[in-house]
């Protein structure tokens, strides 16, 4: 599965994935994740790189019970679209919870976690997941 086990690819994507780097369109005002040079909403090329906020709310979620092969050992796990506090919607896993503990509107905080490993010998891929806010 060469497409999943690429080291340069993980390296290239690390800043956006580790730090939640999004785009803010200077033309239409839309903020989006991940960052790219063209606004997906209006097509403008005037997009600024922004560090997105690390807290947000679970907007919608599901429990993956029939996972892609590289996630087989993790199932069942919770994936969600998290509405960050600036309004940007981000897809991510929700961690440190049992599937039954998640609810729409749950306040969550970004945390760097392991997403998958490239087999026994390959690199570990880290990225941002969200876990309940510790208050």
């Amino acid at each position: 599965m060469a497409y999943l086990r690429s080291v340069p690819r993980v390296w290239r994507e690390r800043e956006i994935k580790y730090r939640l780097i999004g785009g803010a369109c200077r033309s239409c005002g839309r903020r989006f994740y991940p960052y790219r040079q063209t606004c997906p909403a209006c097509g403008s090329e005037e997009v600024e790189r922004v560090k997105l906020p690390e807290t947000g709310t679970v907007e919608v979620f599901t429990v993956v019970r029939s996972p892609p092969s590289e996630f087989a050992e993790q199932a069942p796990y919770v994936v969600a679209l998290v509405r960050l506090d600036d309004g940007t919607l981000v897809p991510a896993q929700i961690t440190d919870v049992d599937p039954g503990e998640v609810y729409e509107g749950m306040r969550v905080e970004a945390a760097l976690r392991r997403y998958r490993t490239q087999g026994e010998r390959g690199i570990i891929e880290y990225g941002i997941k969200f876990r309940p806010l510790i208050q």
Binding site: T62, S66, P67, S69, E70, Q93, Y115
Partner: peptide, 28 residues
């Protein structure tokens, strides 16, 4: 293919780098 590989194939319809990366399946 194994079911897990079919699940991999189907989620290739979404953004592999930033969406499928999270473990989201196409069903999800």
């Amino acid at each position: 293919a194994y079911t897990g590989d079919v699940t991999d194939a189907l989620v290739m319809a979404e953004d592999q780098e930033y969406v499928a990366f999270t473990g989201l399946s196409f069903v999800a």
